[in-house]
Amino acid sequence: MERYVIQAAYKTLQVLLAFTHAPHRFSLAELTELTGMDKNQVFRAVKTLEHAGFLSSEPDGKLVLTSVVNALTASNHRTAAVSLPRAAAGHMYRLFEQTGETVGLYAYDGEQAVCIDLLESVKAIRWASLIGKHLHLHAGAGAKAILAYLDPKAQQAFLGKLHTLPKYTPRTITDPELMRREIERTRERGYAVSDREYDAETRAVSAPIFSASGRVVGSIAVGGPAFRMADEHLQIYGHMAVGTAAEISAEMGFLRLGSRVSSTS
C-alpha cells in the first residue's frame, strides 16, 4: 500500500463504498464477505461510520446509508452534470479503434435497453444497429449486461415475464432458470456474451456502466459477425469492454476502492 495512505481510513472507505452495490443494505457478515476484509476490521469501520453519521441500523439490524451521503452527492456538481453519452464519448471511440469492430452504447430505459450511440466498423461485413433501437433485456449483450446488474427486485420482476418475450433465434433464452445461470456467468466474468441469440449471425460482448449512486445505467458493447468473433476474441474484447465501462463509470462519478468490491447494482 502507498506509504502515505492511512490504512484504517482506507479500509473504512472500502466499507462505505460497499453500499454503492445492491441491495444497498447489509449485515456485518455480508459486508465482511463483500469487502474481503477481516470481521473485526469491518466492525470497527462500521462503528466509525455510524459515529460519523454515514451509516445507521434498520429495525432488522441491516446497515444503510444516511442522508449525509445524499448531501455529499448533491454537492458534487461536476459529476451530477455528466450525462452518459458525454461520459462515454472518448472512451467509446478508443475501444472502437482498438477492436476495429462495431461499438454500441446502451442506456437502461424501463425494462429495455436503448442504443444511444453507435460507432460502426469500417469492415465490409459488420454488426449494424440503429440509434434509438430498444431491446428487451433478455437478448443481446448490451441488454444482458444491464439485466445482470439490476437490483434484485427489478431483476426478479423481469424474469417473471421472460416466458412472454420473443425468441429471436433458437439460442434466445426465455427460460427463467437458464437466464439466472446466464446472469451468474455474466457477473463472474464481468461482461455479458451474446452468441447469435438476437441475430443468428452476430456475436458480441458488453460490460455494465454505473452511475455515481452505484446503479446500473447502461452498457457498452463490442460486436461483429460470428465468423470473425471467435471465442478468444470474445474474451479479449470482453475484458476490454470491462475496462472501458469502468472508465465511463468513473466519469459518471462512480468510485470504488479495493479489488474485492466489484461493480454491481
Rank of each mutant, 00 (worst) to 15 (best):
63 L>T: 00
56 S>Y: 00
142 G>A: 10
61 G>Q: 04
142 G>V: 06
155 Q>P: 13
128 A>S: 08
135 L>N: 13
50 E>T: 00
110 G>Q: 12
155 Q>A: 11
43 F>Y: 06
151 D>Q: 06
89 A>E: 08
59 P>T: 06
56 S>H: 08
100 G>M: 05
113 A>T: 07
81 A>N: 12
99 T>W: 11
81 A>G: 14
132 G>F: 15
102 T>N: 11
122 V>K: 13
64 V>C: 01
139 A>P: 10
141 A>S: 09
111 E>S: 09
92 M>Y: 03
109 D>H: 01
71 A>C: 14
123 K>F: 05
129 S>H: 04
137 L>F: 08
62 K>Y: 02
111 E>T: 02
110 G>K: 13
78 R>G: 05
44 R>M: 13
61 G>K: 10
60 D>A: 02
122 V>I: 14
149 Y>S: 15
54 F>T: 03
85 P>L: 10
99 T>M: 09
96 F>K: 02
100 G>E: 13
119 L>K: 09
97 E>C: 05
130 L>C: 11
125 I>W: 00
62 K>S: 07
136 H>G: 15
100 G>S: 09
110 G>E: 10
115 C>D: 10
93 Y>T: 12
143 A>N: 08
131 I>C: 14
124 A>E: 02
114 V>T: 15
145 A>V: 10
112 Q>C: 11
83 S>N: 11
81 A>W: 10
111 E>V: 12
62 K>C: 02
125 I>C: 00
52 A>D: 12
126 R>N: 03
76 N>H: 10
76 N>K: 06
71 A>E: 11
67 S>R: 08
91 H>F: 09
71 A>T: 15
93 Y>K: 15
129 S>G: 08
77 H>Y: 08
132 G>A: 15
62 K>W: 08
90 G>V: 04
50 E>Y: 00
135 L>S: 04
109 D>M: 01
133 K>M: 10
101 E>P: 03
125 I>Q: 03
55 L>N: 01
57 S>I: 03
61 G>C: 05
70 N>L: 05
87 A>R: 08
146 I>N: 04
123 K>Q: 14
90 G>F: 06
54 F>E: 07
88 A>D: 03
141 A>M: 10
98 Q>P: 08
117 D>F: 07
79 T>W: 12
114 V>S: 14
74 A>Q: 13
82 V>K: 15
87 A>G: 03
68 V>W: 13
146 I>V: 00
44 R>Q: 12
116 I>M: 14
142 G>N: 11
89 A>P: 06
116 I>L: 12
63 L>H: 07
130 L>A: 15
147 L>K: 04
124 A>N: 06
57 S>G: 12
143 A>W: 07
109 D>V: 12
86 R>W: 00
68 V>H: 11
78 R>S: 02
